[in-house]
Write a protein that binds this DNA or RNA. Structure first.
Lengths: 201, 201
DNA sequence: GTCGGTGCTGTACGCCGGTATAGGATGCTT
DNA sequence: AAGCATCCTATACCGGCGTACAGCACCGAC
């Protein structure tokens, strides 16, 4: 979460980066302007260029910072099992940026890393399972990674659909309970799955 | 799919709309320019404005057309059960546009309609179920709608992760088989789910 | 002290893209 | 034939935004 009380105690470079993450997360890369970012960070337009060179480079610095943060959060939350399923709370201000990064074309490495993590998790989970699945583990991991990220990416719609603010503790709890429910109940029953498999040949 | 062989046999208005759907789907609303759209449609810049008035209005016309198409596809595919799970093939060129619409802020009605559809589906599925879930149906439907759309929205990442082109018949088949696998196998076993529920209180 | 490096500001340039407008061709009505 | 609506083109405008650059204050090194 990195709850920073006073922006003054950060270096200007860090303040610019954080402001960029906020603005890009909120408006997307195209609509976020260097001028607005500079104003939010309390610096001049020129300083952004001085530190980062270009808007692209600024975005790449944000990506790098997000990557580091996600890795750190992932390492921290490796212990408590359900935390890995919460796609909103832990990310804080990075949530919106991550959604933009995933949907606006960049951030491929991040998704790929999540797929790899999912693949290892799946391999462990499949070890004690009777019927071996006949689809490539990579494919399953990719689809499950996408699903795990769906709430993060479609956050506003999910908020609206659930009729709750997922950034509040109550909303977070509701989301977690819903996720447990959804993840513990198969969507397709055995007979429906068999039918679908037969249909697919 | 609406496979149109010759763009010439469409009215200019329709050609502009289709070109807009392609361009916005490919580049996003901001980066898609009216000039490029006009060129793709084989018309002048002014004609776009003549027919649609503004870029915003053009987007709204695209939204409306997408909405109609999705409704039609949904009505057509109501019979065959697995088709409802295929988020890619049926949409064709509208897939990318739908992803943009969902992640760039508009298209709320479309998501809401999918949530309502999911809610009805859930109500029917829950009828013959032993343990009643203790989370609001709306919340479950919203999360499941998000998950159902995740492959559509994160399409390029899923393609890359699965190492397959999902627009080809083989890719489509692989995706469908993977979806059946994922949907038929609960991610959380009964004991893990109980543990998570206990942890959440 | 002065010299260079660093952090920072202000201003200007130039392009891109949405918007606006004037005008031409075609076809239908009276 | 005249008038008029519809469809369409070409060109101009102008604001926004990324980029570039000149210069200033501060500070440690020698």
């Amino acid at each position: 979460m990195t709850t920073v009380q006073d922006p003054e105690d950060l270096t200007a470079r860090a303040r610019i980066r954080d402001a960029a993450i906020r603005h890009i997360g909120e408006h997307g890369f195209e609509r976020a302007t260097i001028r607005d970012i500079a104003e939010s960070a309390g610096v001049s337009l020129g300083l952004v260029r001085h530190h980062f060179g270009s808007k692209q480079a600024l975005r790449e610095a944000c990506d790098e910072h997000l990557m580091k943060t996600v890795r750190r959060l992932n390492a921290e939350a490796a212990g408590s099992p359900p935390a890995g399923f919460n796609p909103v709370a832990a990310l804080g201000p990075y949530r919106a940026y991550l959604a933009r990064a995933l949907t606006e074309g960049w951030a491929a490495p991040l998704f790929d890393e999540m797929t790899r993590i999912g693949e290892r998790w799946l391999a462990a989970a499949d070890r004690d399972r009777a019927d071996p699945p006949d689809v490539p583990p990579r494919a399953r991991a990719a689809v499950m990674a996408a699903m795990a990220l769906s709430v993060t990416v479609l956050y506003p719609h999910v908020c609206r659909g659930m009729d709750a603010d997922l950034s509040t503790p109550e909303g977070e709890r509701l989301l977690m309970r819903t996720l447990v429910e959804v993840y513990s109940q198969p969507v397709l029953g055995p007979e429906a799955a068999a039918e679908a498999r037969a249909w697919l040949g």
